[in-house]
Design a protein around this nucleic acid. Structure first.
Ligand SMILES: [Zn+2]
Ligand SMILES: [Zn+2]
Ligand SMILES: [Zn+2]
Ligand SMILES: [Zn+2]
Lengths: 151, 151
DNA sequence: CCACTATTGAGACGTAATCTCAATAATATA
DNA sequence: TATATTATTGAGATTACGTCTCAATAGTGG
């Protein structure tokens, strides 16, 4: 049976890296999050749990997990480095409300295909892509429409 | 006749901001760049030209220029904040080689339309989007294919 | 020209991320 | 198992990038 830990272990072996308890603690903490998170969320959580794992170790681990395709960077639109777990999860892109920060995950096969076509047209092999749609959701638009009347 | 400076002046007026020589120097420096640039490129160039304009003034100006649609943030995929001039330039997205950092600008109307459709479907009004395709170009693939033989 | 107010810039500050290096722990080998 | 080898850890220093402070300066409108 495949678990994120077994895949992680496999990846470490393949890369000549060691399976340490700090790395396991950090990965477990990361897996405890529901959606998107920042590095500091992990640091804070690992301290709460009184598990070993430091800032240096975390920042060394993050690119390893990305390379292993267990996590990825997401929501780059506002300059903050956010992550999400991608292990065993289908690819998706994001629609974000710039006012209330609500995030909607969506999948659009046609766009995925067109993106690959564009890459091919220019002689590229596509490895990944960032697609983030930024706008205002219905609720936030309503609120903004109202506020002028209040002033 | 419309120039970037006249549009800039207009925007400042509209926002109740003043046209200062530092802002003009910084904008001129920004316009001297061909493609994508980072804040430090501007700072370095303005020092070389021995024009007035400081770090604080630059970082205060950048969001103003973004709001005026004279520049925009681009190439977020690697975490660095890069800008490009958008004044008098059609919208485009980016295809990037992760190996040699070559950037190709492309325009794909169908995707633009589909993106708006997705936003509408979820009740959003789309303000902007980030779409960056990351892969490896033909040349870099060739180089990588060869290197194992050299070792 | 004056009065008013926005702007500037040197440097302090904040925050995210990386680096250093001695101590420690994981692994391979005997 | 014991030992040698080498990767890893973590506290704290350091860097990179960006923001803030505030006294001096400079636009602006009247
Ligand atoms: Zn996608
Ligand atoms: Zn997501
Ligand atoms: Zn586009
Ligand atoms: Zn561009």
């Amino acid at each position: 049976m495949q678990t994120i830990l077994s895949d992680f272990t496999k990846h470490l072996k393949a890369e000549g890296l060691r399976l340490t308890k700090e790395r396991v603690h950090l990965l477990e903490t990361i897996c405890s999050f529901k959606g998107h998170f920042i590095a500091d969320d992990i640091l804070f959580a690992i301290k709460s749990r009184r598990k070993s794992g430091s800032r240096a170790t975390l920042y060394r681990l993050l690119p390893v997990l990305v390379k292993a395709s267990l996590i990825q960077q997401s929501l780059l639109y506002d300059g903050q480095t956010k992550y999400e777990v991608t292990w065993n999860k289908a690819h998706h892109d994001h629609l974000i409300c710039s006012s209330c920060s609500m995030v909607i995950e969506f999948k659009h096969n046609t766009i995925e295909i067109l993106q690959r076509e564009i890459a091919n047209k220019y002689g590229f092999i596509l490895d990944r892509h960032v697609m983030e749609l930024v706008g205002r959701c219905k609720d936030c638009r309503r609120k903004n429409d109202v506020s002028p009347r209040l002033c």
